[in-house]
Design a protein around this nucleic acid. Structure first.
Lengths: 226, 226
DNA sequence: TCCAAAGTGTGACCGTGGTAACATTTTATT
DNA sequence: AATAAAATGTTACCACGGTCACACTTTGGA
């Protein structure tokens, strides 16, 4: 992907809706950005690392994860093409990454230096409003995550997950979007604990499952046990 | 507190640093804001309530809390004079309060309608940048909270709390900033569980405590057990 | 000053879920 | 097709912390 290529991506991005291709080309000088490729599981930003850039995902999937003192993983959210990371850290009173950012697949990231972001904010109001929306939406993601993990039991996490996926996939047969290991990380629990609880729910007649799908059997019980 | 009074508060607020008193008076027309007083424990915004205003705390303390399905309380953060709430919801793609907002003491709130906020953003860049900082800082508060509650054990929560308070208060004798009941809510746990763990820590020689203070005895053990 | 209400200490009981260890299956690599 | 590596299933053990129940203390109003 050369200069022209990612320029095409940018010009179709909502943040840059107000910019003509010429204007974009004019603003984007080489010292203002870096395009980098990351392998799967490669760290993009360490926890407590200083933030100097806003990152735009050109391709691939990127996970933001919280690691506790014992190394347990809690996946906060997964971002993809067109999503933006680190915008909040450019404007906040503390500019260190509170969590680790790593590539979940081969990923190409456009690192936009903060000077560029500030300049773009100066130049264009639509960009700035768009950035406020991006940052504001991050607060909602984090709030939702707090909501999700402060539901105590694993069963409640699973039910919540199944409700959501069943609605998205419009089916009682939910195809798992990731491995069970990754699903456990999303809940911030042990893989074996997830496995155990799935078994219990099967015994209770709520679900059926195999390696790649979970079938919702008794949606009534599923609903009333929330 | 009449019009003049809160105008004085506004003009000394960093968000309005660029505004002359005249300019402020010009912008602030009655249909743009409401000043309201809330009693202790009175709800300011319910969860899932639609957000129409950005709220500026003129006096008192305001808690943002997450309630789970069984009514357990997790206090996310406590805000006070000069702090701003709801700014993120004005710019985000979803504008319902994800958590409950209530007065922790008698509180006076200035509700600024979103039209006014948008107008202020149009008028003044400093205001807009300031607002971005406010919203960005909210993401950090939420990230920190996720970090705090995903530390599994109650003992770790207590140690973390004591480290922080000991540093702030510059003393090994930590005066509790709130009741033990409220402290338990801050950790999102049962009050009796907090009480039990404090006892265990006293037995282990880590701390001493009474109703209003906790004395750090063995800071070494405190540090190594993190 | 009295009394109700709220906060606090304490204990018994037991379910949820972490830990560790191993077997089994699936996936990727040569 | 063969082998290593990763993911998954399964089990026994037990600690942490939720629940409930009650006594005690402090606080704030009447």
């Amino acid at each position: 992907m050369n200069h022209q290529d990612f320029m095409a991506v940018l010009s179709s991005h909502s943040l840059f809706a107000d910019f003509s291709n010429q204007a974009l080309n004019q603003v984007f000088r080489a010292h203002y950005y870096e395009k980098r490729e990351y392998q799967k599981d490669q760290v993009i930003h360490f926890q407590n690392e200083c933030c100097r850039t806003m990152d735009l995902i050109l391709s691939g999937r990127v996970a933001v994860q919280n690691l506790d003192s014992e190394g347990n993983v809690l996946t906060i959210s997964i971002f993809q093409d067109g999503d933006v990371l680190g915008a909040n850290l450019i404007f906040s009173s503390r500019n260190t990454y509170p969590m680790i950012v790593l590539a979940q697949s081969l990923a190409v990231i456009l690192h936009l230096h903060q000077e560029l972001i500030l300049e773009l904010c100066q130049m264009n109001r639509t960009f700035m409003i768009g950035l406020m929306k991006v940052i504001s939406d991050k607060t909602l993601i984090l709030s939702d995550k707090i909501n999700a993990i402060s539901m105590k039991t694993i069963r409640q996490c699973i039910i919540d997950f199944l409700r959501y996926e069943s609605r998205i996939q419009k089916s009682q047969i939910v195809r798992l979007p990731s491995s069970k290991k990754e699903l456990a990380q999303r809940f911030g629990i042990q893989r074996s604990s997830l496995s155990r609880e799935l078994n219990k729910m099967r015994q209770d007649g709520l679900i059926d499952f195999d390696a790649k799908t979970i079938t919702i059997r008794n949606i009534n019980n599923l609903n009333e046990s929330s």
